[in-house]
Write a protein that binds this DNA or RNA. Structure first.
Lengths: 252, 252
DNA sequence: GATCATAGTCGTCTGCTTGACGATAAACAC
DNA sequence: GTGTTTATCGTCAAGCAGACGACTATGATC
């Protein structure tokens, strides 16, 4: 294993982002349209090169800010204010994943509350929140009936891995609150779980579970009626990051 | 995000391996002694450069074979024969992690049954199985009383992350069987959990749990008495990879 | 203002899993 | 045989989850 500088092949290193949010009861991911070949005109995950003096997490946070305006949290700090949760997902390095050169991409996963509208270099038509189901279906048709092209590069795989990570992680952590605004109701949190898992949950058992787990939610004292119906208590995310026992995802 | 070939800084990409096994009731990791600067003479994780035409998983499997002679499993296939479990762990890319140049390391985690003896280029004194507690304690003294130097580079962090991954993953998957030979007893599997978690488990409850989880263990029909005491049934790992409900790690 | 629809919150009951631990079984050493 | 070790089965109580009834507090509709 000598580190002879002439003995190793050079790589380009990028970060790609799986930015997830919940909009209109659906789990959505941020997609940007590629403006140049390869895969010109196709949708892709946002990302970019890691700079020479930058850590991987810094690069991911910078890209996230550039694409969405979101600040990333320090991962060691519990979810708070309107920053996004950001964590490393996995690294993809197939020699043929980019037809032009050898690129290793360190994918990151970001979870954000519902945001107004994406901006990508100021051009709204080149960035959008798309339901992950729509982005992942291969060769199907979108909700508007137009044919859906698969994501560029290996981004479908990266997105699928990110979604799976998010689905499993909200089971045993308090990460689902990262999809919520600073103050939220139990019902809003439940709708997050329902959107991410794609299932219906019993409101009564869910309420018992989340309010009974110490440190998960702290009441702010306020109430809201923005969902209609009886006013609901408002909560903030508590300090607990791990849920024990976990939230159980219903079978199949 | 233009892909102008002159616009990105070149990186070296390596794979580093956290190879874990259980020896004499202790969780051990493979360490190799560095033969050259920086950190010459210090212990480090095995690893090496990713080749120009190689996938990351291939590079990790190649390094694993070079260091231990182990073949890696296809991760989609359940644990079987004496191959090792191999999975990607995380990627480390701090600009200063290698003092000579910009190196991004894609760390992998391997779990192996107890092996005869490590070989690193045929020189046994340059590779060893060391208890992870010993490798991770900073500036302490080893079991033989000699001072322990911390691992080279950021390998202590990588090792800690790998150990934590293994500890949590055996909770909800059948991965603990990767530490066992092809055929093993419930008691041997229990001692794996005890070594990895560093706790004592009730043999009766453990037996009930693992034999009661469908698909976890399949009896081979044979028995063995190699542990002394009453002969124990032999099992192979079953097809199940996920344990539901999980194996619970005792509180603190 | 009465009624209805909607969403939130509190309780109850039942079954399953766990943790603690008693008891028995089958080998070996002496 | 006696003691030691390890394996295996059984029992019991506590805790938690799923199913679901009941009640509350809003806004919408008649």
């Amino acid at each position: 294993m000598p580190y002879d500088p002439s003995a190793f092949p050079p790589f380009a290193v990028t970060v790609d982002l799986v930015v997830l949010t919940v909009r209109r009861h659906a789990l959505c991911a941020l997609a940007v349209r590629r403006g140049e070949p390869p895969f010109q005109g196709r949708w892709a995950l946002p990302g970019g090169f890691v700079r020479a003096d930058e850590d991987l997490a810094q690069a991911a946070a910078r890209e996230l800010a550039e694409e969405t305006g979101l600040r990333a949290h320090d991962p060691s700090v519990p979810v708070q204010d309107n920053g996004a949760h950001l964590e490393q997902l996995a690294t993809y390095g197939d020699p043929k994943r980019d037809p032009r050169m050898r690129v290793v991409s360190v994918a990151h996963l970001a979870l954000a509350p519902d945001l107004p509208a994406p901006r990508a270099g100021g051009d709204a038509s080149n960035a959008r929140w798309a339901p992950v189901d729509e982005l992942l279906q291969q060769g199907g048709y979108g909700r508007d009936g137009e044919p859906v092209a698969p994501l560029a590069f290996d981004h479908a795989q990266i997105l699928a891995d990110g979604v799976e990570r998010a689905r499993s992680k909200i089971e045993y952590s308090s990460l689902a609150t990262a999809f919520c605004p600073t103050e939220f109701t139990v019902g809003e949190l439940r709708r997050v779980y329902e959107a991410v898992w794609g299932v219906a949950l019993d409101p009564r058992n869910f309420h018992r579970k989340v309010t009974g787990t110490p440190g998960f939610l702290v009441p702010t004292g306020g109430t809201t009626t923005r969902q209609g119906g009886r006013p609901a208590q408002l909560f903030r995310a508590g300090g607990a990051t791990l849920l024990n026992p976990p939230m159980l995802r219903p079978e199949v």
